[in-house]
Design a protein around this nucleic acid. Structure first.
Lengths: 226, 226
DNA sequence: CGCATTGTTGACAAAGTTCAATTTGCGTGG
DNA sequence: CCACGCAAATTGAACTTTGTCAACAATGCG
Protein backbone atom coordinates (compact mmCIF):
# COMPACT_ATOMS: atom_id res chain seq x y z
CA UNK A 1 0.00 0.00 0.00
CA UNK A 2 1.42 3.33 -1.14
CA UNK A 3 0.63 5.65 1.75
CA UNK A 4 1.51 9.11 0.49
CA UNK A 5 0.85 12.11 2.68
CA UNK A 6 -1.74 14.68 1.72
CA UNK A 7 0.67 17.46 0.66
CA UNK A 8 2.44 14.89 -1.52
CA UNK A 9 -0.81 13.93 -3.17
CA UNK A 10 -1.40 17.55 -4.07
CA UNK A 11 1.89 18.21 -5.84
CA UNK A 12 1.70 14.78 -7.45
CA UNK A 13 -1.82 15.49 -8.67
CA UNK A 14 -2.53 14.50 -12.25
CA UNK A 15 -3.51 18.11 -12.68
CA UNK A 16 0.17 19.05 -12.56
CA UNK A 17 1.48 16.23 -14.73
CA UNK A 18 4.24 17.52 -16.97
CA UNK A 19 4.38 20.91 -15.26
CA UNK A 20 7.68 22.16 -13.83
CA UNK A 21 8.00 22.80 -10.11
CA UNK A 22 8.40 26.48 -10.85
CA UNK A 23 5.17 26.60 -12.87
CA UNK A 24 3.31 24.58 -10.25
CA UNK A 25 4.15 27.27 -7.74
CA UNK A 26 2.95 29.99 -10.08
CA UNK A 27 -0.29 28.18 -10.74
CA UNK A 28 -0.92 27.51 -7.06
CA UNK A 29 -0.14 31.12 -6.21
CA UNK A 30 -2.90 32.22 -8.57
CA UNK A 31 -5.39 30.17 -6.56
CA UNK A 32 -7.00 30.95 -3.27
CA UNK A 33 -6.65 28.53 -0.39
CA UNK A 34 -9.81 27.83 1.59
CA UNK A 35 -10.87 25.69 4.51
CA UNK A 36 -14.34 24.37 5.20
CA UNK A 37 -15.99 22.23 7.81
CA UNK A 38 -17.25 18.72 7.36
CA UNK A 39 -20.73 18.61 5.82
CA UNK A 40 -20.38 21.98 4.08
CA UNK A 41 -21.62 22.01 0.52
CA UNK A 42 -19.12 23.49 -1.97
CA UNK A 43 -21.54 23.79 -4.86
CA UNK A 44 -24.80 22.42 -6.17
CA UNK A 45 -25.11 20.41 -9.34
CA UNK A 46 -26.78 22.31 -12.15
CA UNK A 47 -25.37 25.70 -11.20
CA UNK A 48 -22.80 27.39 -13.43
CA UNK A 49 -19.27 26.08 -12.96
CA UNK A 50 -17.41 29.25 -12.01
CA UNK A 51 -14.67 27.61 -9.96
CA UNK A 52 -12.20 24.78 -10.24
CA UNK A 53 -11.21 23.03 -7.01
CA UNK A 54 -8.17 21.04 -6.01
CA UNK A 55 -8.68 19.13 -2.80
CA UNK A 56 -5.67 19.30 -0.47
CA UNK A 57 -6.76 17.72 2.77
CA UNK A 58 -9.79 15.99 4.17
CA UNK A 59 -12.36 14.30 1.94
CA UNK A 60 -15.48 15.09 -0.01
CA UNK A 61 -18.19 13.41 -1.99
CA UNK A 62 -19.38 14.23 -5.47
CA UNK A 63 -23.02 13.24 -5.93
CA UNK A 64 -26.32 13.84 -7.63
CA UNK A 65 -29.79 13.96 -6.20
CA UNK A 66 -32.22 11.45 -7.63
CA UNK A 67 -35.81 12.30 -8.43
CA UNK A 68 -36.87 10.31 -5.37
CA UNK A 69 -34.74 12.44 -3.10
CA UNK A 70 -31.91 10.01 -2.54
CA UNK A 71 -28.30 10.83 -3.32
CA UNK A 72 -26.31 8.90 -5.90
CA UNK A 73 -22.59 9.13 -5.19
CA UNK A 74 -20.53 9.74 -8.30
CA UNK A 75 -17.06 9.90 -6.81
CA UNK A 76 -15.29 9.83 -3.50
CA UNK A 77 -12.94 12.80 -3.69
CA UNK A 78 -9.50 12.53 -2.11
CA UNK A 79 -6.55 14.95 -1.79
CA UNK A 80 -5.05 15.57 -5.21
CA UNK A 81 -8.40 15.29 -7.01
CA UNK A 82 -9.71 18.19 -9.04
CA UNK A 83 -13.40 18.84 -9.56
CA UNK A 84 -15.54 21.50 -11.11
CA UNK A 85 -13.75 20.93 -14.40
CA UNK A 86 -16.59 22.68 -16.20
CA UNK A 87 -14.93 25.92 -15.08
CA UNK A 88 -12.16 25.18 -17.55
CA UNK A 89 -14.10 25.80 -20.71
CA UNK A 90 -14.44 29.24 -22.24
CA UNK A 91 -18.21 29.48 -21.82
CA UNK A 92 -18.71 27.78 -18.48
CA UNK A 93 -21.13 24.87 -18.33
CA UNK A 94 -23.00 23.51 -15.34
CA UNK A 95 -21.54 21.45 -12.54
CA UNK A 96 -22.62 17.87 -13.22
CA UNK A 97 -23.06 17.07 -9.54
CA UNK A 98 -22.88 18.61 -6.10
CA UNK A 99 -19.83 18.50 -3.86
CA UNK A 100 -19.95 18.18 -0.10
CA UNK A 101 -17.15 17.82 2.42
CA UNK A 102 -17.27 14.58 4.38
CA UNK A 103 -14.51 15.82 6.67
CA UNK A 104 -12.91 19.18 7.38
CA UNK A 105 -11.22 20.15 4.13
CA UNK A 106 -8.51 22.38 2.74
CA UNK A 107 -8.45 23.10 -0.97
CA UNK A 108 -7.30 25.50 -3.67
CA UNK A 109 -9.86 27.34 -5.81
CA UNK A 110 -9.41 29.08 -9.12
CA UNK A 111 -12.03 31.44 -10.51
CA UNK A 112 -13.02 30.92 -14.12
CA UNK A 113 -11.28 34.05 -15.43
CA UNK A 114 -8.05 33.27 -13.57
CA UNK A 115 -8.14 29.76 -14.89
CA UNK A 116 -8.57 30.91 -18.47
CA UNK A 117 -5.50 33.12 -18.15
CA UNK A 118 -3.49 30.29 -16.65
CA UNK A 119 -4.62 27.89 -19.35
CA UNK A 120 -3.35 30.34 -21.96
CA UNK A 121 0.07 30.50 -20.32
CA UNK A 122 0.34 26.81 -19.37
CA UNK A 123 -1.45 24.78 -22.04
CA UNK A 124 -0.34 21.64 -20.25
CA UNK A 125 -2.99 22.09 -17.59
CA UNK A 126 -5.71 22.17 -20.25
CA UNK A 127 -4.29 18.94 -21.56
CA UNK A 128 -4.34 17.52 -18.05
CA UNK A 129 -7.93 18.60 -17.52
CA UNK A 130 -8.98 16.75 -20.66
CA UNK A 131 -7.02 13.64 -19.70
CA UNK A 132 -8.55 13.63 -16.23
CA UNK A 133 -12.04 14.07 -17.65
CA UNK A 134 -11.47 11.17 -20.02
CA UNK A 135 -10.32 9.08 -17.07
CA UNK A 136 -13.47 10.03 -15.13
CA UNK A 137 -15.51 8.99 -18.15
CA UNK A 138 -13.72 5.65 -18.45
CA UNK A 139 -14.20 4.99 -14.75
CA UNK A 140 -17.87 5.73 -15.00
CA UNK A 141 -18.37 3.54 -18.04
CA UNK A 142 -16.61 0.74 -16.22
CA UNK A 143 -18.89 1.26 -13.25
CA UNK A 144 -21.98 1.19 -15.41
CA UNK A 145 -20.84 -1.95 -17.18
CA UNK A 146 -20.18 -3.54 -13.79
CA UNK A 147 -23.65 -2.76 -12.57
CA UNK A 148 -25.03 -4.67 -15.55
CA UNK A 149 -22.68 -7.64 -15.63
CA UNK A 150 -21.43 -8.52 -12.18
CA UNK A 151 -23.12 -9.22 -8.86
CA UNK A 152 -23.72 -6.81 -6.02
CA UNK A 153 -21.11 -8.66 -3.99
CA UNK A 154 -18.39 -8.31 -6.63
CA UNK A 155 -19.18 -4.65 -7.13
CA UNK A 156 -19.07 -3.88 -3.45
CA UNK A 157 -15.79 -5.73 -3.02
CA UNK A 158 -14.18 -3.88 -5.94
CA UNK A 159 -15.43 -0.55 -4.69
CA UNK A 160 -14.18 -1.17 -1.19
CA UNK A 161 -10.75 -2.29 -2.35
CA UNK A 162 -10.42 0.70 -4.61
CA UNK A 163 -11.43 3.03 -1.82
CA UNK A 164 -8.82 1.41 0.36
CA UNK A 165 -6.20 2.35 -2.21
CA UNK A 166 -7.42 5.87 -2.88
CA UNK A 167 -8.76 7.01 0.42
CA UNK A 168 -7.34 4.48 2.85
CA UNK A 169 -5.63 5.85 5.90
CA UNK A 170 -3.01 3.63 7.44
CA UNK A 171 -4.21 1.98 10.62
CA UNK A 172 -2.76 -0.65 12.91
CA UNK A 173 -5.23 -3.25 11.63
CA UNK A 174 -5.18 -2.28 7.96
CA UNK A 175 -6.51 0.49 5.75
CA UNK A 176 -9.27 2.59 7.23
CA UNK A 177 -11.88 4.28 5.09
CA UNK A 178 -14.19 6.87 6.65
CA UNK A 179 -17.46 6.11 4.94
CA UNK A 180 -20.94 5.00 5.95
CA UNK A 181 -22.62 1.85 4.67
CA UNK A 182 -25.08 3.90 2.74
CA UNK A 183 -22.39 5.95 0.99
CA UNK A 184 -20.35 2.87 0.20
CA UNK A 185 -23.38 1.15 -1.18
CA UNK A 186 -24.27 4.11 -3.34
CA UNK A 187 -20.77 4.18 -4.83
CA UNK A 188 -21.12 0.51 -5.72
CA UNK A 189 -24.75 0.78 -6.82
CA UNK A 190 -25.93 -1.55 -4.08
CA UNK A 191 -28.68 -0.81 -1.56
CA UNK A 192 -27.70 0.01 1.98
CA UNK A 193 -29.32 -3.21 3.16
CA UNK A 194 -27.41 -5.48 0.85
CA UNK A 195 -24.30 -3.50 1.73
CA UNK A 196 -24.89 -4.09 5.41
CA UNK A 197 -25.43 -7.82 4.89
CA UNK A 198 -22.29 -8.24 2.81
CA UNK A 199 -20.16 -6.24 5.24
CA UNK A 200 -21.47 -8.33 8.12
CA UNK A 201 -20.44 -11.49 6.34
CA UNK A 202 -16.98 -10.14 5.55
CA UNK A 203 -16.60 -9.07 9.14
CA UNK A 204 -17.48 -12.59 10.31
CA UNK A 205 -14.85 -13.93 7.91
CA UNK A 206 -12.27 -11.56 9.35
CA UNK A 207 -11.77 -9.67 6.12
CA UNK A 208 -12.81 -6.32 7.57
CA UNK A 209 -13.70 -4.58 10.81
CA UNK A 210 -16.60 -2.17 11.18
CA UNK A 211 -17.06 0.94 13.23
CA UNK A 212 -19.83 3.45 12.83
CA UNK A 213 -18.97 5.52 9.79
CA UNK A 214 -15.79 3.63 8.93
CA UNK A 215 -14.57 0.36 7.51
CA UNK A 216 -11.16 -1.15 8.19
CA UNK A 217 -9.88 -3.48 5.52
CA UNK A 218 -7.86 -6.14 7.27
CA UNK A 219 -7.43 -8.82 4.61
CA UNK A 220 -8.00 -7.44 1.12
CA UNK A 221 -7.25 -10.85 -0.37
CA UNK A 222 -10.36 -12.32 1.28
CA UNK A 223 -12.50 -9.93 -0.73
CA UNK A 224 -11.19 -11.08 -4.09
CA UNK A 225 -13.75 -13.52 -5.41
CA UNK A 226 -13.32 -13.08 -9.18
CA UNK B 1 -38.23 17.99 -35.80
CA UNK B 2 -35.07 19.75 -36.96
CA UNK B 3 -34.01 17.74 -39.99
CA UNK B 4 -30.59 19.07 -40.93
CA UNK B 5 -28.67 17.45 -43.75
CA UNK B 6 -25.48 15.57 -43.08
CA UNK B 7 -23.05 18.19 -44.47
CA UNK B 8 -24.81 20.78 -42.31
CA UNK B 9 -24.34 18.63 -39.26
CA UNK B 10 -20.63 18.48 -39.92
CA UNK B 11 -19.98 22.22 -40.16
CA UNK B 12 -22.35 22.81 -37.24
CA UNK B 13 -20.52 20.20 -35.17
CA UNK B 14 -19.81 21.19 -31.59
CA UNK B 15 -16.21 20.49 -32.47
CA UNK B 16 -16.15 23.71 -34.50
CA UNK B 17 -18.05 25.87 -32.04
CA UNK B 18 -16.54 29.34 -31.97
CA UNK B 19 -14.23 28.67 -34.92
CA UNK B 20 -14.36 30.97 -37.96
CA UNK B 21 -15.36 29.55 -41.33
CA UNK B 22 -11.87 30.20 -42.57
CA UNK B 23 -10.29 28.24 -39.72
CA UNK B 24 -12.79 25.43 -40.11
CA UNK B 25 -11.59 24.99 -43.67
CA UNK B 26 -7.97 24.97 -42.55
CA UNK B 27 -8.67 22.39 -39.88
CA UNK B 28 -10.63 20.18 -42.23
CA UNK B 29 -7.94 20.45 -44.86
CA UNK B 30 -5.43 19.05 -42.36
CA UNK B 31 -7.59 15.93 -42.02
CA UNK B 32 -7.91 12.99 -44.34
CA UNK B 33 -11.31 12.01 -45.66
CA UNK B 34 -12.11 8.33 -45.62
CA UNK B 35 -14.99 6.05 -46.54
CA UNK B 36 -15.78 2.67 -45.06
CA UNK B 37 -18.43 0.03 -45.51
CA UNK B 38 -21.12 -0.83 -43.04
CA UNK B 39 -19.91 -3.25 -40.36
CA UNK B 40 -16.27 -2.17 -40.64
CA UNK B 41 -14.54 -1.66 -37.31
CA UNK B 42 -12.71 1.66 -37.05
CA UNK B 43 -10.79 0.81 -33.91
CA UNK B 44 -10.84 -1.47 -30.90
CA UNK B 45 -11.28 -0.28 -27.36
CA UNK B 46 -8.10 -0.53 -25.31
CA UNK B 47 -5.74 0.27 -28.19
CA UNK B 48 -3.84 3.55 -28.22
CA UNK B 49 -5.89 6.50 -29.44
CA UNK B 50 -3.81 7.69 -32.38
CA UNK B 51 -6.65 9.23 -34.38
CA UNK B 52 -9.54 11.58 -33.89
CA UNK B 53 -12.62 11.02 -36.05
CA UNK B 54 -15.40 13.30 -37.20
CA UNK B 55 -18.32 11.41 -38.67
CA UNK B 56 -19.71 13.05 -41.82
CA UNK B 57 -22.21 10.61 -43.24
CA UNK B 58 -23.73 7.28 -42.33
CA UNK B 59 -23.82 6.02 -38.77
CA UNK B 60 -21.70 4.11 -36.28
CA UNK B 61 -21.86 2.63 -32.84
CA UNK B 62 -19.47 3.13 -29.97
CA UNK B 63 -19.46 0.11 -27.69
CA UNK B 64 -17.61 -2.07 -25.23
CA UNK B 65 -17.41 -5.82 -25.00
CA UNK B 66 -18.59 -7.32 -21.75
CA UNK B 67 -16.81 -10.16 -20.02
CA UNK B 68 -19.64 -12.48 -21.12
CA UNK B 69 -19.07 -11.63 -24.75
CA UNK B 70 -22.02 -9.31 -25.27
CA UNK B 71 -21.66 -5.76 -26.49
CA UNK B 72 -22.71 -2.79 -24.40
CA UNK B 73 -23.52 0.20 -26.58
CA UNK B 74 -22.12 3.43 -25.23
CA UNK B 75 -23.25 5.84 -27.90
CA UNK B 76 -25.01 5.91 -31.23
CA UNK B 77 -22.74 8.07 -33.37
CA UNK B 78 -24.30 10.43 -35.90
CA UNK B 79 -22.87 12.88 -38.45
CA UNK B 80 -21.21 15.77 -36.64
CA UNK B 81 -20.06 13.60 -33.71
CA UNK B 82 -16.39 13.32 -32.89
CA UNK B 83 -14.88 10.26 -31.25
CA UNK B 84 -11.44 9.03 -30.36
CA UNK B 85 -10.98 12.11 -28.21
CA UNK B 86 -8.11 10.37 -26.43
CA UNK B 87 -6.01 11.33 -29.47
CA UNK B 88 -6.23 14.92 -28.29
CA UNK B 89 -4.00 14.62 -25.28
CA UNK B 90 -0.24 14.99 -25.48
CA UNK B 91 0.54 11.45 -24.40
CA UNK B 92 -2.25 9.49 -26.06
CA UNK B 93 -4.41 7.30 -23.87
CA UNK B 94 -6.48 4.27 -24.86
CA UNK B 95 -9.75 4.33 -26.75
CA UNK B 96 -12.45 3.71 -24.15
CA UNK B 97 -14.57 1.66 -26.53
CA UNK B 98 -14.63 0.24 -30.02
CA UNK B 99 -16.25 1.96 -33.00
CA UNK B 100 -18.02 0.13 -35.78
CA UNK B 101 -19.92 1.51 -38.77
CA UNK B 102 -23.60 0.54 -38.79
CA UNK B 103 -23.96 1.95 -42.31
CA UNK B 104 -21.57 3.01 -45.05
CA UNK B 105 -19.72 5.98 -43.60
CA UNK B 106 -17.71 9.00 -44.63
CA UNK B 107 -15.57 10.74 -42.03
CA UNK B 108 -12.55 12.96 -41.43
CA UNK B 109 -9.54 11.64 -39.52
CA UNK B 110 -6.71 13.51 -37.87
CA UNK B 111 -3.54 11.79 -36.75
CA UNK B 112 -2.33 12.56 -33.24
CA UNK B 113 0.64 14.66 -34.35
CA UNK B 114 -1.45 16.71 -36.78
CA UNK B 115 -4.01 17.26 -34.10
CA UNK B 116 -1.45 18.49 -31.61
CA UNK B 117 -0.22 21.07 -34.11
CA UNK B 118 -3.75 22.20 -34.83
CA UNK B 119 -4.57 22.43 -31.15
CA UNK B 120 -1.57 24.72 -30.72
CA UNK B 121 -2.77 27.03 -33.48
CA UNK B 122 -6.51 26.87 -32.67
CA UNK B 123 -6.87 26.52 -28.90
CA UNK B 124 -10.62 26.73 -29.36
CA UNK B 125 -10.79 23.13 -30.59
CA UNK B 126 -9.09 21.92 -27.41
CA UNK B 127 -11.69 23.80 -25.48
CA UNK B 128 -14.39 22.18 -27.60
CA UNK B 129 -12.93 18.74 -27.04
CA UNK B 130 -13.09 19.24 -23.29
CA UNK B 131 -16.64 20.58 -23.45
CA UNK B 132 -17.76 17.65 -25.57
CA UNK B 133 -16.10 15.18 -23.23
CA UNK B 134 -17.84 16.79 -20.27
CA UNK B 135 -21.13 16.49 -22.13
CA UNK B 136 -20.45 12.79 -22.81
CA UNK B 137 -19.75 12.36 -19.11
CA UNK B 138 -22.95 14.14 -18.11
CA UNK B 139 -24.95 12.04 -20.54
CA UNK B 140 -23.48 8.88 -19.17
CA UNK B 141 -24.10 9.83 -15.58
CA UNK B 142 -27.68 10.63 -16.47
CA UNK B 143 -28.00 7.24 -18.13
CA UNK B 144 -26.57 5.45 -15.14
CA UNK B 145 -28.87 7.32 -12.78
CA UNK B 146 -31.81 6.41 -15.01
CA UNK B 147 -30.96 2.74 -14.91
CA UNK B 148 -31.17 2.89 -11.13
CA UNK B 149 -34.24 5.04 -10.68
CA UNK B 150 -36.68 4.64 -13.55
CA UNK B 151 -38.35 1.67 -15.19
CA UNK B 152 -37.23 -0.17 -18.29
CA UNK B 153 -40.20 1.26 -20.14
CA UNK B 154 -39.33 4.85 -19.33
CA UNK B 155 -35.69 4.33 -20.24
CA UNK B 156 -36.54 2.75 -23.55
CA UNK B 157 -38.99 5.51 -24.40
CA UNK B 158 -36.45 8.22 -23.57
CA UNK B 159 -33.75 6.48 -25.55
CA UNK B 160 -35.97 6.04 -28.56
CA UNK B 161 -37.14 9.64 -28.54
CA UNK B 162 -33.62 10.92 -28.21
CA UNK B 163 -32.48 8.70 -31.06
CA UNK B 164 -35.32 10.07 -33.15
CA UNK B 165 -33.94 13.55 -32.58
CA UNK B 166 -30.31 12.74 -33.15
CA UNK B 167 -30.38 10.02 -35.72
CA UNK B 168 -33.89 10.23 -37.10
CA UNK B 169 -34.26 10.35 -40.86
CA UNK B 170 -37.36 12.04 -42.13
CA UNK B 171 -39.90 9.53 -43.40
CA UNK B 172 -43.45 9.84 -44.66
CA UNK B 173 -44.77 8.25 -41.46
CA UNK B 174 -42.41 9.94 -39.01
CA UNK B 175 -38.78 9.72 -37.95
CA UNK B 176 -37.00 6.54 -38.94
CA UNK B 177 -34.10 5.16 -36.93
CA UNK B 178 -31.99 2.36 -38.39
CA UNK B 179 -31.34 0.20 -35.34
CA UNK B 180 -32.09 -3.33 -34.21
CA UNK B 181 -34.05 -4.20 -31.10
CA UNK B 182 -30.94 -5.56 -29.50
CA UNK B 183 -28.92 -2.39 -30.13
CA UNK B 184 -31.73 -0.16 -28.96
CA UNK B 185 -32.12 -2.24 -25.84
CA UNK B 186 -28.42 -2.08 -25.11
CA UNK B 187 -28.44 1.72 -25.37
CA UNK B 188 -31.28 1.85 -22.87
CA UNK B 189 -29.90 -0.90 -20.63
CA UNK B 190 -32.87 -3.13 -21.26
CA UNK B 191 -32.72 -6.74 -22.48
CA UNK B 192 -33.62 -7.46 -26.09
CA UNK B 193 -36.68 -9.39 -24.90
CA UNK B 194 -38.13 -6.61 -22.83
CA UNK B 195 -37.32 -4.26 -25.68
CA UNK B 196 -39.23 -6.43 -28.09
CA UNK B 197 -42.24 -6.62 -25.78
CA UNK B 198 -42.38 -2.88 -25.24
CA UNK B 199 -41.98 -2.11 -28.93
CA UNK B 200 -44.78 -4.54 -29.75
CA UNK B 201 -47.07 -2.78 -27.33
CA UNK B 202 -46.21 0.64 -28.72
CA UNK B 203 -46.81 -0.65 -32.20
CA UNK B 204 -50.23 -1.91 -31.18
CA UNK B 205 -50.96 1.54 -29.77
CA UNK B 206 -49.93 3.16 -33.04
CA UNK B 207 -47.00 5.02 -31.52
CA UNK B 208 -44.41 3.39 -33.75
CA UNK B 209 -44.00 1.10 -36.72
CA UNK B 210 -41.46 -1.69 -36.89
CA UNK B 211 -39.44 -3.06 -39.75
CA UNK B 212 -36.55 -5.43 -39.45
CA UNK B 213 -33.61 -3.34 -38.32
CA UNK B 214 -35.52 -0.07 -38.07
CA UNK B 215 -38.08 1.73 -35.98
CA UNK B 216 -40.37 4.48 -37.23
CA UNK B 217 -41.60 6.88 -34.60
CA UNK B 218 -45.08 7.93 -35.62
CA UNK B 219 -46.44 9.57 -32.49
CA UNK B 220 -43.69 10.62 -30.11
CA UNK B 221 -46.26 12.01 -27.71
CA UNK B 222 -47.66 8.53 -27.10
CA UNK B 223 -44.30 7.49 -25.68
CA UNK B 224 -44.23 10.19 -23.04
CA UNK B 225 -45.39 8.54 -19.86
CA UNK B 226 -43.58 10.59 -17.22
C1' DC C 1 -27.27 11.77 29.30
C1' DG C 2 -30.22 12.24 25.28
C1' DC C 3 -30.97 12.17 20.72
C1' DA C 4 -30.01 11.93 15.89
C1' DT C 5 -27.61 9.15 12.91
C1' DT C 6 -26.20 4.81 11.54
C1' DG C 7 -26.58 0.09 11.40
C1' DT C 8 -29.26 -4.60 11.60
C1' DT C 9 -32.48 -8.18 10.53
C1' DG C 10 -36.38 -10.66 8.52
C1' DA C 11 -40.18 -11.22 5.59
C1' DC C 12 -41.76 -10.10 1.23
C1' DA C 13 -42.38 -8.49 -3.47
C1' DA C 14 -41.54 -7.65 -8.25
C1' DA C 15 -39.41 -5.98 -12.17
C1' DG C 16 -36.77 -7.92 -15.55
C1' DT C 17 -33.78 -11.49 -17.08
C1' DT C 18 -32.94 -15.91 -18.85
C1' DC C 19 -33.81 -19.83 -21.66
C1' DA C 20 -35.85 -22.35 -25.27
C1' DA C 21 -38.50 -22.80 -29.14
C1' DT C 22 -40.31 -20.63 -33.25
C1' DT C 23 -41.35 -17.50 -36.74
C1' DT C 24 -40.52 -13.85 -39.79
C1' DG C 25 -38.08 -11.00 -42.89
C1' DC C 26 -34.61 -10.03 -46.18
C1' DG C 27 -30.48 -10.28 -49.05
C1' DT C 28 -28.23 -13.20 -52.14
C1' DG C 29 -26.73 -16.41 -55.20
C1' DG C 30 -27.89 -20.05 -58.29
C1' DC D 1 -36.88 -14.85 -60.06
C1' DC D 2 -37.28 -18.11 -56.60
C1' DA D 3 -35.45 -20.67 -52.83
C1' DC D 4 -32.19 -20.85 -49.34
C1' DG D 5 -30.17 -19.56 -45.09
C1' DC D 6 -28.87 -16.36 -41.72
C1' DA D 7 -30.04 -12.55 -38.71
C1' DA D 8 -33.64 -10.51 -36.31
C1' DA D 9 -37.80 -10.68 -33.94
C1' DT D 10 -41.35 -13.02 -31.06
C1' DT D 11 -43.52 -15.36 -27.30
C1' DG D 12 -44.28 -17.91 -23.05
C1' DA D 13 -42.91 -19.65 -18.72
C1' DA D 14 -40.00 -20.10 -14.89
C1' DC D 15 -36.77 -18.03 -12.06
C1' DT D 16 -33.87 -15.07 -9.09
C1' DT D 17 -31.28 -11.60 -7.46
C1' DT D 18 -32.01 -7.40 -5.13
C1' DG D 19 -34.64 -3.92 -3.56
C1' DT D 20 -38.35 -2.48 -0.39
C1' DC D 21 -40.54 -1.92 3.94
C1' DA D 22 -40.95 -1.93 8.76
C1' DA D 23 -39.36 -2.27 13.15
C1' DC D 24 -35.71 -2.11 16.11
C1' DA D 25 -30.90 -1.75 18.18
C1' DA D 26 -26.66 0.50 18.98
C1' DT D 27 -23.34 3.98 18.59
C1' DG D 28 -21.19 8.10 19.67
C1' DC D 29 -21.49 13.23 19.40
C1' DG D 30 -22.57 17.47 21.81
Amino acid sequence: MKSSTEPERVVQSEFFAGVTERDKRLILRAAKYRKIDAKSVLFQGGTTALHLFLLCSGGAKYYRMTRQGGELLLRWLVPGDIFGIGAFVKEPVSYIGSAQATEDCGFYVWAHSTLRELAGIHPQISDNALRITLAYLATFIERHASSLTITAEQRLAHTLLQLGHQAGRSHSLGAEVAITNEELGSLADVSQFTTCRLLSRWKKQGAIAKLRGRVIIQSPEKLLVD
